[in-house]
Design a protein around this nucleic acid. Structure first.
Lengths: 339, 339
DNA sequence: TTTTTTTGTGCAAACGAATGCACACCATTC
DNA sequence: GAATGGTGTGCATTCGTTTGCACAAAAAAA
């Protein structure tokens, strides 16, 4: 009924558990004869070492906790795939938690992971999180913590982020070079560093190219619902914006729909640029120019960094920050270069 | 340094570990005085029971394993969210594995989960799986197994599936009622029950409405790459298909792009219907009529069923099958009802 | 033959927590 | 003053595995 143990093997072969244990691990002190006997028996009876007992004894385990704020989400699911890829390669398991952008669930997720005695945690903060005690508790429990993408500014620990500033700067500059003059920014809450960095990239690109920074064109608009409200409003201004730089592909795609149904042509009248490079960008009409965030790469790098910490291979004692390069992917919603 | 244990508390208060253990659990044999002493000490020193030790002793744990074939995928990530929701509610943790549509990785995932001694497994099969020994091994190890969506026909165990047949039937009948006569089916490998059931729904809808079942119109076309090849080919037939019923929203969206660039109008000349109801359906032009699979609901039901098995609340001894209702969601890529 | 070395195996403790049983102490009762 | 009962605590074992140490038996050296 229950899985077979070392003791069971020992009893069956009239040996001691210690001998069996050593035989299984090819310990040199065990005779070849005994070794074969034990290993054959283990094989035929499908012996599986009990990981729990092992972990208890060695006080080390190979489970990494992951907290994502959102899972039905192209970027985060891509990051998760990258984490899984790297973790599996290195023999680590993944305990998965989903905060659903909810502070209370994020706190509970941390408790869950600490209770499960994970050896490290990869986390991306929820939008509603404003207190950080739960993250501090991870560190107080001597569990390694690496933030990815939505880092927590209140906690000083390793992190992996996308180069949001450069991504935004490059995208906005591209739109300027193709003749756009009034570029709107549909952003997100400034408390999130990713949103703030993109806004700064956007503004700096305008300034560098001697265009005015109009605060009216810079809005918090990170959901479809907000887009339905804000985009038509911006289209009422005179002159209308000739470009929209959006915080994600979904908002950009909705924005395109609204702009088109208001009678403007894309990209001739209005350019639109998204952020992420998700599936969506290929099925809009026209296809959507976007900034690729390389989520899979980010997941791999974050997992790599955490595992290096766990295994003592990352010797740098201070905080390590890794930057993932972005890439402007030109598609049909922005114009070609104008010379 | 290391987390505090019962023994540590016992030593600090000059008590025995057993007394501390009982005091923590409000055992009646412990005096109120001692109880308070112990609990206060535990509180201030942030004592956390070691789950591993507990699991080892009781031989029960609360971790459920999940195997998904694909994670950067609207439907599966939605199911995962549903599973997570239900599991968290019931105090279970999720060990996450990703087979990436690869048989070898699926086998390894099963090994990983069995090694981790999970109390149950929720799995959806990879496209490339043709042997089922690894799934049988789960059952042989007395671990509960529930399949969801991509069930494994070779293994007789609990399952939760979408009503693919009815979903397809309803969608195809809708297209017929709105005047379509030559409806193409862009399906998937017939070894997958979900694909086969949809094909049967498609064919039965045609027959019921006295339309011919033309094998040339029924193709395996479940990726964007295949769509690029097969859709133009179908558009060369004479007369061209006046509708496409597609295995998923991505293929449907690509199909629309190709049909439009061939000069046909949607839905006036050609109707298109997808399957899933993902974000994509809202950003295509026109929006995409689709069949909602209710992934979140499926995840909840699957987790619920597994947990009931684990906790002995599902008393039915045979195989339990749950069917998730589908729902036709009419958007812009199919015509209105013609009377 | 005796001593030393080698070789193979077993004992016991440890990881952290839970629990049946024994036992010490005090208070009550006859 | 002895028997009884109740109350609070500790001992020892259990889960499955690993590992330092002791020890027995056989082989080699003296």
């Amino acid at each position: 009924m229950n899985p077979i143990t070392l003791k069971d093997i020992a009893k069956a072969l009239s040996l001691s558990p210690s001998t069996v244990s050593r035989a299984m691990k090819n310990h040199p002190a065990i005779s070849a004869e005994t070794r074969k006997l034990v290993q054959d028996y283990a094989e035929t009876h499908k012996y599986k070492p009990n990981t729990l007992a092992l972990q208890l004894r060695t006080n080390r385990n190979t489970t990494i906790g992951v907290i994502v704020p959102e899972i039905v989400h192209y970027f985060f699911s891509t990051v998760l795939a990258g984490i899984q890829h790297e973790a599996e390669k290195e023999g680590y398991n993944l305990l998965f938690c989903h905060s659903n952008e909810d502070y209370a669930r994020e706190v509970r997720s941390v408790e869950t992971l600490l209770d499960a005695r994970v050896c490290g945690i990869l986390a991306s903060q929820s939008k509603t999180t404003e207190k950080f005690d739960h993250f501090q508790e991870i560190i107080d429990n001597n569990v390694y913590l690496v933030f990815f993408d939505r880092i927590c500014t209140g906690i000083n620990t390793d992190k992996v982020v996308v180069d949001d500033y450069a991504g935004a700067y490059t995208a906005v500059e591209h739109m300027i070079h193709t003749g756009c003059q009034r570029i709107a920014f549909l952003g997100s809450t400034p408390s999130m560093p990713i949103a703030n960095n993109r806004r700064m990239g956007y503004e700096d690109a305008l300034r560098k190219n001697k265009l005015p920074v109009d605060k009216n064109l810079s809005r918090i608009c990170d959901t479809i619902e907000l887009a339905r409200e804000i985009v038509p409003e911006l289209l009422k201004s005179d002159p209308i914006p000739d470009a929209f730089f959006c915080i994600n592909d979904e908002v950009a795609a909705y924005c395109m729909q609204i702009v088109k149904s208001a009678g403007y042509r894309i990209p001739e009248d209005v350019s639109v640029c998204g952020f992420t490079n998700s599936y969506i960008t290929e099925v809009t009409n026209p296809t959507l120019t976007t900034v690729d965030q390389h989520g899979f790469e980010m997941g791999k790098v974050a997992a790599r960094l955490l595992i290096n910490r766990i295994e003592g291979k990352e010797i740098k004692s201070g905080v390590v920050s890794r930057l993932i390069k972005t890439e402007l992917v030109l598609k049909g919603s922005t114009r070609g270069i104008i010379r």
